Amino acid sequence: MHDENLEYVGFWPRVGAAIIDSLLLIMVTFPIIHFVYGDAYWYTDSLILDPLDFVINYIFPAVAIILFWVYRQATPGKMAISAKIVDADTGHEVKTSRLILRYVGYYVSSIPLLLGLIWVAFDSRKQGWHDKMANTVVVRRKDRSPRPVSFDN
């Protein structure tokens, strides 16, 4: 399938979307962490304090992100840049099992100095390693403006 109205979303727009998503997650998780653990949490050397800490910082974000992908084909950050995640072969919605694989792929992509994420900048279809693992692409309409700009003379 070839759609002239769509384009692959490149590195910098995806970085912007990731920043938006990260800020939103911080706005939700930090108050909960502070409520549960107090100021002492911010001064500990432990990566994970206990099972609840793991749920708040790892499980909740994973579930939230995957649910956005399943029901909206995008996280809030991707929605802000008018992007969506689709099957790389058909352009259709992606099965939940592959979206879970895509999420796990974020970790795989991050381990070697973020190389799998930076790969988006150099790949012809703008796929990171997580996209390649799940056979997905991130696309958006070329013409995203609500209407053409015009000025009265």
Rank of each mutant, 00 (worst) to 15 (best):
K84S: 09
D53K: 15
S124C: 04
E93P: 00
G105S: 01
A134Q: 07
S82C: 14
Y71R: 05
M1N: 09
S109V: 02
Y107C: 09
Y103R: 04
H130I: 03
V36C: 02
F35L: 08
F54R: 08
Y103A: 00
V28F: 14
K126G: 04
M1F: 11
L114S: 13
Y58F: 15
V86W: 11
K132P: 04
G16H: 04
E93C: 04
Q73M: 11
L6H: 12
M27W: 03
F30E: 10
I65T: 06
F68E: 06
A17L: 05
V104W: 09
P112V: 10
V108Y: 00
K78I: 05
W12L: 15
I26P: 03
L67K: 02
K142S: 02
R72W: 10
N135R: 15
V108R: 03
L117K: 00
M79T: 13
D123M: 11
D53C: 14
L25V: 08
H92S: 14
Y37G: 06
T96Y: 00
R144P: 05
F30R: 02
K126E: 03
V9G: 12
V63M: 12
K78F: 01
V63W: 05
P148F: 12
L24S: 07
F11I: 11
S124G: 10
D123S: 05
L113D: 08
P61G: 07
R72D: 03
N135W: 03
A80S: 13
V55G: 13
D143R: 12
K126D: 03
